[in-house]
Design a protein around this nucleic acid. Sequence first.
DNA 1: GGAACATCTCAGCCAAGACTGAGACAGTTG
DNA 2: CAACTGTCTCAGTCTTGGCTGAGATGTTCC
Lengths: 109, 109
Amino acid sequence: MSFELPVLPVPRLDLKAPDVADGVATAALLADRTRAVILRMLRDGPHCVCEMAAATGERENNVSNHLARLRDAGLVRASRHEANARFLYYERDEPAVSKALAALREIVG
Amino acid sequence: MSFELPVLPVPRLDLKAPDVADGVATAALLADRTRAVILRMLRDGPHCVCEMAAATGERENNVSNHLARLRDAGLVRASRHEANARFLYYERDEPAVSKALAALREIVG
DNA sequence: GGAACATCTCAGCCAAGACTGAGACAGTTG
DNA sequence: CAACTGTCTCAGTCTTGGCTGAGATGTTCC
């Protein structure tokens, strides 16, 4: 229940705020249900926009907007299907995703 | 650059959206700079409200509001200093924080 | 070429949430 | 007890960001 406290009840007012900008930025990306579902689905392999729109129940232009956010952050990339190039498939950039997870781990340890 | 795609260019429209509610909820908590700094600072041990307010540069009532959010989520708990009980010290609930991190890892793998 | 499909972009609307200000409660000090 | 300090709560304001709608681009099929 209780825990160890500093012996002297003297607040330290000279503490610096740690830099958490990267972790906050990635948390903001994960803090939306649609984007979180997208990233989770792409763990299992590439998916095209219409698949993710159907799975999330969101409209395709909305999903496309979220994918643009994830693309700008470097977490996913796209390429067209060779057999039917009108489908745009997305996959995760695993090194970037690992960096994002590391940034989160810097906050919650 | 390119990557393996499904051979058949037939989108699967029967995919279910994975459950990411817990991860999204914790990401929303981390998606604020003040709360992220708080959680990061509390990695190194307990701190009182005025210390965290000074470090973040935010007002104490604002920090208190954010601490209430973290308390409601079960990530931190408070207790008064024995020598000077007017200081309220906060510490992390490590098991709860571990669960939060696991929920994030469920999204980004 | 034209129709249909898959995706993108962007402006506009709207709701969730962060910050402010004022007031209240708890603990300390004289 | 009165004054002061540390923290909390809550209503109000304002900004950030997600969803919608319309239009544009690229691809396939007839």
